[in-house]
C-alpha cells in the first residue's frame, strides 16, 4: 500500500465528477443554442411567430365598429391610420374615383379622340369608306394591342347608304345600337379569363364642322361609333407606367387601382381579396387621401420600386 493511494483515489473521484459534469452539461445545452449567437435560436422563431393583435388606434373602434370588423385576414393588422390619415379632418373628400374603370375610360377617351381626329382629317380629304377602313386597320397596328373599328350611324346611312356587310356592326350588338341611339359612351370588360378585353364605345356626335359634308345630319345626332378593344393585361402594363408617374400622396390610390384589377380574378390573387372586401364595403367618397408615405408599400416594397423611390425623395 503506497502512501499516496488515497490522494490518487480522491483525484480519480474528482476527475470522474468533472467528466460526468461535462457530459451532463453537453446534454442539457438546448439544441439550437449558439446557432446564430450565444442564445437559443429557437426563441427568435418563437418570438417572431407571435400573432400581432393591435390593428390601430382604438379611437376608430369607438365610432367605426362596422369598419373595424371589416378589416380582416392578412391585412387585419394594417392600421386604419395608414390609409385614413388622422389629422383632425379625417373626412377630406377624395379627388375623383381612381378605379380601373375610370382609368380605362380616360385612356380610351383620349385614344378615341385621336382616332376621330385622324378620321376627320381623312374625311376632309374626301376619303371614302374603303380609305377609312384602311386607316382604322393601320391604327389597330399599335404596341398596346388596341384595335379600332368604326361603325356608321343613322345620318351617314341616310346620306351615303349602308356600309359593306363586313363593316356593319353585328346585328345583335346591343351596346353599339345603344351608343348610336343615346350618344353615350360605354366601357365593358368582356371575354374569357386571362384574355379579357376592355371594349370602349365612343359615339361621334354631330357638331357644326361635321355639317360641312354631312349635310343630312343634324346637330346632336350620332354620326357613328368608334370602337376600341384593349386586351386588359396590356392595359395594366400601360397603367403601371402611369402609376410610376403619379405623385406620392396618390400611391394608395395607385395600389387600389391595381387591387381592384387583381380582384377581378380572386382565385388567382386570394391575398388581395380580404383587402378589397374592406375597400368595397367600406369605401366612401369621404375618406381622406393618404399621408405617411404610401403605407401599402411598407410591406409591398418590391411591388413598385419607382414609387417607393419617389415616395422617399418627396
Amino acid at each position: 500500500m503506497n502512501s499516496y493511494q488515497h490522494l490518487s483515489r480522491a483525484a480519480t473521484l474528482l476527475a470522474i465528477l468533472l467528466f460526468a459534469g461535462i457530459v451532463l452539461r453537453a446534454n442539457f445545452v438546448p439544441a439550437s443554442f449558439g446557432k446564430w449567437g450565444a442564445y437559443r435560436a429557437d426563441h427568435i422563431d418563437e418570438e417572431r411567430d407571435r400573432k400581432p393583435l393591435i390593428k390601430a388606434d382604438d379611437s376608430c373602434l369607438d365610432c367605426h365598429e362596422k369598419e373595424w370588423d371589416m378589416a380582416d385576414g392578412k391585412h387585419a393588422n394594417v392600421p386604419c391610420a395608414d390609409c385614413h390619415f388622422l389629422d383632425g379632418e379625417h373626412a377630406r373628400p377624395l379627388e375623383g374615383d381612381q378605379s380601373l374603370n375610370e382609368f380605362a375610360l380616360a385612356e380610351s377617351r383620349k385614344n378615341s379622340q385621336m382616332v376621330f381626329k385622324s378620321l376627320f382629317a381623312a374625311m376632309k380629304e374626301g376619303w371614302d369608306q374603303d380609305d377609312i377602313e384602311k386607316l382604322s386597320l393601320m391604327l389597330s397596328q399599335n404596341e398596346w394591342g388596341m384595335r379600332v373599328r368604326v361603325y356608321r350611324g343613322e345620318p351617314v346611312i341616310r346620306q351615303f347608304g349602308e356600309a359593306l356587310p363586313a363593316r356593319q356592326a353585328p346585328a345583335g350588338d346591343v351596346d353599339i345600337r345603344k351608343a348610336l341611339l343615346s350618344g353615350e359612351e360605354s366601357l365593358k370588360i368582356e371575354g374569357e379569363r386571362d384574355a379579357e378585353v376592355a371594349r370602349y364605345l365612343f359615339p361621334l356626335k354631330v357638331e357644326t364642322p361635321c355639317l360641312e359634308c354631312h349635310t343630312k345630319a343634324r346637330i346632336g345626332e350620332v354620326n357613328g361609333v368608334i370602337e376600341l378593344l384593349y386586351p386588359l393585361n396590356r392595359m395594366k402594363l400601360k397603367m403601371h407606367t402611369k402609376l410610376a408617374d403619379m405623385p406620392v400622396d396618390r400611391s394608395r390610390e395607385a395600389c387600389q387601382v391595381c387591387h381592384r384589377f387583381l380582384n377581378s380574378r380572386p382565385e388567382k390573387h386570394p391575398q388581395v381579396k380580404d383587402f378589397d372586401e374592406h375597400i368595397k364595403k367600406g369605401w366612401k367618397a369621404d375618406m381622406g387621401p393618404v399621408d405617411l408615405g404610401a403605407p401599402c408599400l411598407r410591406c409591398h416594397k418590391a411591388h413598385i420600386p419607382s414609387i417607393v423611390k419617389k415616395n422617399v425623395n418627396a
Binding site: R48, I54, D57, L86
Partner: peptide, 21 residues
C-alpha cells in the same frame, strides 16, 4: 419591451407607433 419583434419582423410597426396619433 421587444419593439414588438413579432410585428416588425412582419413589416408592421410596433404597436405603440401604430397607434400614436
Amino acid at each position: 419591451c421587444t419593439w414588438c419583434y413579432h410585428r416588425i419582423t412582419k413589416g408592421l410597426l410596433p404597436a405603440c407607433v401604430t397607434v400614436c396619433p
